[in-house]
């Protein structure tokens, strides 16, 4: 482990270096407080510190005080080395943020043993922050998986519902329009029966790609279940949503055959949220519009 030894007197510094070299320490030396502080601002600097109190420039205690104010201030273990030895001096150094106080003349084995305590604490900090980093990564992965549909990599129903609830309260508060488009792939059962399930999956993925290509970044597209999809368009009234829905319909009708070798179309129901309407009712109305599109012959957009 790296250890920083800051001591202005060269002889004392060499004696200190001798105490720590050969005991698993990688010694970094500084000949005054300013140099010590520069080292502590470099990447990969030591976190275990033995600092002489009285040095020209910044004192050892001043370094510790400044260090504790940094965001990573709690990750250091600092031993103040000094010929001062009154209880007041000790209290001043420890209150200033030092972890340990060693009076000169020091006993080499005792000083090394105190530094070893610091080494344990620094490596504990290191292990903890590494574990926290891994946990944060795992949490990010879990959140992503929990929000996503595996096949299409669109959002899933649960994420969509959470998002819809939030968007409706925002629309209520800031008084902006919000619309929903509910989509169903036409005769999807027949696709599966005729071409097999993996072809069905190909069609679902191709449609997800079309949604992604047409959606604005603020739109939320999700797989609602089976062959049903849903799109939330904030700051968009029904007419705007209808334009988007028509683009989706038309792109699917013109491109699905080319991309998947299977001619498939979609039906879409479009509704705009009405003030006071809850998410369930809004979705129910979108569903109704979608089924009218089916009843009226499929491959069309119906406004609800």
């Amino acid at each position: 482990m790296k250890i920083l030894l800051a001591e202005d007197d060269k002889i004392s510094r060499r004696l200190l270096e001798r105490v720590f070299s050969g005991y698993g320490y990688d010694v970094v030396s500084a000949s005054d407080g300013d140099e010590a502080w520069r080292i502590l601002e470099e990447p990969e600097h030591p976190h275990l510190l033995v600092l002489d109190w009285m040095m020209p420039g910044v004192t050892g205690v001043e370094i510790v005080k400044r260090l504790r104010e940094r965001p990573d201030g709690h990750t250091y273990y600092a031993i103040i080395l000094t010929s001062l030895d009154t209880p007041d001096d000790l209290a001043y150094a420890l209150d200033g943020g030092a972890d340990e106080f060693v009076s000169k003349p020091y006993h080499a084995d005792a000083l090394r043993a105190r530094a070893n305590v610091g080494r344990r604490i620094v490596s504990l900090h290191h292990t903890l922050s590494e574990k926290i980093r891994l946990l944060q990564e795992a949490n990010a992965t879990i959140s992503h998986l929990a929000a996503t549909d595996e096949l299409t990599t669109l959002y899933n129903r649960r994420y969509f519902n959470e998002n819809l609830t939030k968007s409706i309260s925002a629309a209520k508060r800031y008084k902006f329009p919000l619309s929903l488009v509910m989509v169903d792939i036409d005769k999807f059962k027949a696709v599966n029966d005729t071409y097999g399930h993996s072809s069905g999956d190909t069609v679902l993925k191709a449609f997800a790609d079309i949604l992604r290509s047409l959606a604005r970044t603020e739109d939320v597209s999700a797989r609602w279940g089976g062959e049903e999809f849903i799109i939330l368009l904030t700051h968009t009234a029904r007419d705007g949503a209808a334009v988007m829905a028509e683009r989706v319909r038309s792109k699917m009708a013109s491109e699905c055959l080319r991309v998947t070798s299977i001619p498939v179309t979609v039906s879409l129901g479009v509704v705009e949220w009405g003030d006071g309407e809850d998410p369930e009712l809004l979705i129910k109305r979108a569903d109704k519009a979608l089924y009218r599109a089916k009843d009226e012959g499929r491959n069309r957009v119906v406004l609800g």
């Binding site: 202005d8 007197d9 002889i11 004392s12 004696l15 009285m54 020209p56 010929s83 000169k104 003349p105």
Partner: peptide, 17 residues
Amino acid sequence: HSIRVCAHTIKGMASNL
């Protein structure tokens, strides 16, 4: 203060030597 720090350094060095 500088006189004090410098004398302190010499004192420490001398006691180490």
